[in-house]
Write a protein that binds this DNA or RNA. Sequence first.
DNA 1: TTTCTTACA
DNA 2: TGTAAGTA
Length: 255
Amino acid sequence: MVEYRIDELAQSAGTTVRNIRSYQDRGLLPPPRLRGRVGLYDDAHLARLRLIGQMLERGYTLANISDLVAAWEAGRDVGAVLGLEQVLTDPWTDEIPGWATYEELVAAFGLDTAPDEIEERLRRAVELGLVEPDGDRFRVPSPRLLHVGAELVAGGVPLEAVLEIADEIRRDCEVIANRFVDLVDTHVLKDADLLGADAGRVSEVIRRMRPLVQMVVNPFVARGMEQRVRAELGDKLEVLMAEERADGRVGDPAV
DNA sequence: TTTCTTACA
DNA sequence: TGTAAGTA
């Protein structure tokens, strides 16, 4: 088990010792295990600090984060929380900037097919809003989304299938988003005057809902995938891992 | 030396 | 959020 002393933890998380103590006082960070007088922190603390840091960067206040953490922990399952923080804080190498050239897109998605086929894929990507043509370049509204697509392609999923499922997932997410909006609408806002005196409250609710939805959806998606993977690929995976061990290899996972 | 608490700005 | 004093 990896353990950090407070100074090491602060460095790893890109914050300061002072802030860690501050977060602890506010209940944003669980207390460390104690050995004598010194606190020992682990990866869960590091993940939490990264989550806090990311949310602060996005403009949320400590009070906002505190509310969300409290809300989440009120109905949590320990394993799911750890999984959630893992998902939310996993660093992803974002080699694709908010803008990409035609050549960069072709390279990122390994498009070595016929030119007319490339045009077709690109047309579809534009249609889905994944990239937007702008002069001789393309604007990438969500580099992270594009990165996921590139990862899938690198993993052997045909780009055609990636684009297809991107559209399906977008529709599914719209359904989820609408459910949350309906929920708040019927239970919180009720017959509030959206354009009048309650506008501030409405925007506050909306502002707080965004990360909440992300926090709720992430573990469900992770759990759903885990179940499917276990059910359909479990045996194959076991065989592959057994072969890995037999070969005495460490890395080079067979995706 | 480092950690921790408390306090002040 | 940074800094400082006094401890363990």
